[in-house]
């Protein structure tokens, strides 16, 4: 895989730019044309997203994958900025660096068997290890089908790959369960979209504004009856706002 000169260049660029202002969007630059026009002011990227967050865990190739993934799933449109502009890539990186990513609360003793779907997660991998293996396997799948890594595909191709993953139509050559990887990846993207901004995602509370979730609001007691069958709207409040 690393023989691909394009990939080498990308890896170099990512490494060189780590910490640089452009780092978080390089991988997603190519398909930007396929995305919709400038969002209205209310959905504009928040100031936090402009500051380069840097990555704790993701390697350059992985960062490119994650950025492409979150921008494919959460494109910029009139409803929200794109995934990297609301920090979902940063959320995933921080989650993998956290105790959760390292297998906190996960029973990891063997022996390991495939089990039935009813028996749930049965891999020997921590979430961080599963992301790493899953990115590698998905990129290998994309190289095989299209001759390019996932982040180098155009938007339609990336959507098609994700659809195949989502419908269980992908088998990884290395034996990794595509279902296990995808269900975690999908869930983490949603967590990055909708969790409190303190975790790095949902910047500008874009996910909360999308649905109208008011955040860690303190008191609805007076609203139960007065807001019944009326849309209750409020500027969402986060943990940081109240701290």
């Amino acid at each position: 895989m690393s023989k691909d000169p394009g990939l080498q260049r990308r890896v170099f660029l990512k490494g060189a730019a780590a910490g640089g202002a452009a780092a978080s969007t390089i991988g997603a630059a190519a398909p930007a044309a396929a995305q919709s026009a400038t969002p209205p002011p209310s959905a504009a990227p928040p100031p936090q997203a402009a500051a380069a967050p840097g990555y704790m865990v993701l390697r350059p190739e992985e960062a490119a994958f994650v950025e492409a993934l979150v921008d494919t799933m959460i494109p910029a449109d009139e409803l929200s900025p794109k995934g990297t502009d609301i920090g979902i890539n940063v959320f995933i990186d921080r989650a993998l660096a956290s105790g959760w990513g390292k297998g906190d609360r996960l029973y990891l003793q063997g022996p390991w068997k495939e089990g039935t779907p009813q028996q749930g997660y049965q891999l020997s991998l921590t979430p961080a290890q599963l992301w790493r293996a899953g990115i590698e396997a998905t990129n290998a799948h994309c190289e095989k089908a299209h001759g390019k890594a996932f982040d180098q595909l155009d938007a339609a191709q990336r959507n098609a790959v994700l659809t195949d993953l989502d419908r269980g139509r992908v088998t990884f050559d290395n034996g990794l369960s595509a279902r296990a990887f995808w269900s975690m990846a999908y869930q983490n993207v949603m967590e990055g979209m909708f969790s409190d901004p303190i975790y790095g995602g949902n910047q500008g509370k874009a996910g909360w504004k999308l649905v109208g979730f008011p955040g860690v609001i303190e008191n609805n007691r007076g609203r139960v009856v007065s807001s019944r069958d009326k849309r209750f709207e409020a500027d969402p409040v986060s943990i940081a706002d109240m701290s």
Binding site: P75, S80, Y186, V211
Partner: peptide, 29 residues
Amino acid sequence: GRPIGYRPVPAGTPRWGTEWKRATRQWYQ
């Protein structure tokens, strides 16, 4: 209505992208 867990949409709704966002927004309420 905690939104990581609570996002009901009708069957057949796309799982991501703009149409997913639109449906998620509409049916949340």
